[in-house]
Design a protein around this nucleic acid. Structure first.
Length: 509
RNA sequence: GGAGCGUUGGUCAAGGGGUUAAGACACCUCCCUUUCACGGAGGAAUCACGGGUUCGAUUCCCGUACGCUCUACCA
């Protein structure tokens, strides 16, 4: 399966946070490249200067790094086909637009935005609510198809703003093989004369993607399903530019849908329903909005990758948990679903839980420590932290849960759930714990068996059922009704701390 | 409106002419556990609808419905 010629790319435009669907596209690109021993390229499609957002490009690179999906060639690291930022390749595109004009496959157009609006309004009917610039309407517009040649030259020479549009043939069937959907075909009569080169001299996506995919020797192009309708434009471009033999294989990925209702999943849905949509925290410098990401919410990159991989793909077996290496080995585009999938946050969390359970605690400790520190807990001894993580892993779904589930090992609980024990509290129980704290003092070998034995022995002496005492003991040490075995907790926090917590609790009861 | 794409339990999905139509998440019941979890056992689908083709269709073909995407000098 090795084909070192394989070259794929992720080509985002740097306009904001990196969406789930974007990361999945990256992932599929990455898996495909690695599987074939090829190259994965990051190319920044920043041809729309009005949508430029400072920091967005760096943010994308950081996300890829966090996910472990680092490109072989990128703006940051360079590569044999640099530059990898379309704004820096600006001059390249014009010559091909001009070539298309020479060949009669494109033409100059001088219509102002207002004139275009007027056209759309004029031709708008009930049957055709969105008229396009096409073989019919172009005859009624101001362009090189309707103006005499000398007028066109004159307009250009006096600096009239113009665009270059592709001249779509009137009736041609355009077909290609999609790696996921099989044969897909379109008739050109419904395709419009897309702008190739904008008035500011920048190419549109359509021109740039074809020129760059060719220039960068891209062999396979994976993108979201929303691009399917513009495929015929791209096919025509590959053809007109004379590169059709080098056109990449395409795969149009199914969309990730809203959990409720229908439609593409958006950042808004996440805000609305309380789950992340972006890979990492994204701070928008224009609106001052901070959007929480999967990373900051406590997701492991391993789990994030895993859940994205199986959102629309599976290997046909019952396996659901895949490491990146397994994915590289097993991923295959023809097993990608055709239909979109609704995003399910509950299931997403389940994947994280599974990964927490599987990953070794020392590894987890590295990722949990910072959260502990930020929340005011200092871990003096890493070994203790690892031991604690071993004990509480099963009850942590997100990395941030470790604080809730394990904080009391390092710091006495700030509040005790006394309401949980008060109703059944008796003076005998008070006496029990009072005596217990004295006796615990005398234990020489502080370990689970010693503590448990002493606890039972004292309970028998006081003639109280063990079950009646364990819950209060737990609340004293933990603060609430949760956590691993009480005696394990006592053993871990140490003699002095255990006694202190009992004594303090007794003052509240 | 048009075009393209899609449609297996609430969700993710396996399967694909003859099956008891896998599995997972969520939910419910029970077991384990004198905490909370983990773990274990159960529980739900006339495979969107209508026509064909066929001895037989969830699976193939054609329609219909529904949904989504696109229909910008945005990607």
């Amino acid at each position: 399966m090795t084909d070192t010629n394989v070259r794929v790319r992720f080509a985002p435009s740097p306009t904001g946070g990196l969406h789930l669907g974007g990361v999945r596209t990256v992932l599929y690109n990455y898996l495909f490249a690695k599987q074939h021993g090829g190259k994965f390229i990051l190319r920044i499609e920043d041809t729309d200067q009005s949508r430029f957002v400072p920091g967005a490009e760096e943010y994308i690179q950081d996300c890829l790094q966090w996910c472990g999906l680092e490109p072989d060639e990128s703006p940051q690291h360079g590569g044999p086909y640099a530059p990898y930022r379309q704004s820096e390749r600006k001059d390249l595109y014009r010559q091909f637009a001009l070539q298309l004009i020479d060949q009669g496959n494109a033409y100059y157009a001088f219509d102002t935005p207002e004139e275009l609006d007027a056209m759309r309004l004029e031709f708008k009917t009930e049957d055709n609510p969105s008229p396009t610039y096409n073989y019919q309407t172009r005859l009624k517009m101001r362009n090189a198809e309707t103006l005499p040649a000398d007028e066109v030259s004159r307009l250009i020479s006096i600096g009239t703003p113009y665009v270059i549009r592709i001249k779509i043939p009137q009736n041609e069937t355009l077909t290609f093989i999609d790696m996921i959907r099989g044969e897909v075909s379109f008739n050109s009569f419904l395709v419009d004369d897309k702008v190739l080169l904008k008035a500011d001299g920048m190419p549109t996506y359509h021109l740039a993607v074809v020129v760059d995919d060719y220039a960068m020797k891209i062999t396979h192009a994976f993108r979201g399903e929303e691009w399917l309708p513009s495929a015929p434009v791209h096919i025509l471009l590959w053809k007109y530019l004379g590169w059709i033999a080098d056109m990449p294989m395409w795969a149009h990925l199914p969309l990730i849908l809203k959990p409720d209702g229908h439609g593409k999943l958006s950042k808004r849905d996440g805000d609305r329903m309380g789950f992340p949509v972006f890979a990492m925290n994204w701070y928008d410098p224009r609106s001052n909005d901070l959007t929480t990401g999967f990373r900051e919410l406590g997701f492991l990159p391993e789990a994030f990758i895993n859940l994205l991989a199986v959102l629309g793909w599976n290997d046909g077996s019952e396996q659901e948990i895949f490491s990146i290496d397994e994915l590289i080995q097993k991923f295959s585009m023809d097993k990608v679903h055709k239909g979109g999938a609704k995003f399910n946050y509950e299931k997403a969390k389940w994947f994280n839980h599974e990964w927490i359970k599987r990953l070794p605690s020392p590894y987890l400790a590295e990722r949990v420590k910072a959260d502990f520190t930020a929340k005011g807990i200092t871990v003096a001894n890493d070994e203790v932290l690892v031991k604690v993580l071993d004990m509480i892993k099963d009850r942590c779904t997100l990395l941030t849960d470790f604080y809730e589930q394990g904080g009391f090992f390092f710091k006495a609980p700030a509040t005790l759930d006394v309401a949980a024990i008060k109703p059944k509290w008796t003076n005998d129980k008070f006496m029990f714990f009072d005596i217990l704290s004295e006796k615990l003092m005398l234990i020489e070998e502080w370990n689970v068996t010693a503590i448990e034995a002493l606890f039972k022995e004292t309970a028998t002496e006081k003639n109280i059922k063990l079950g009646e005492l364990q819950l209060p003991f737990r609340v004293m040490l933990v603060g609430g009704k949760f956590g691993p075995g009480v005696f394990d907790i006592a053993a871990t926090i140490g003699k002095a701390e255990t006694i202190n917590r009992i004594k303090f609790a007794l003052t509240l009861l």
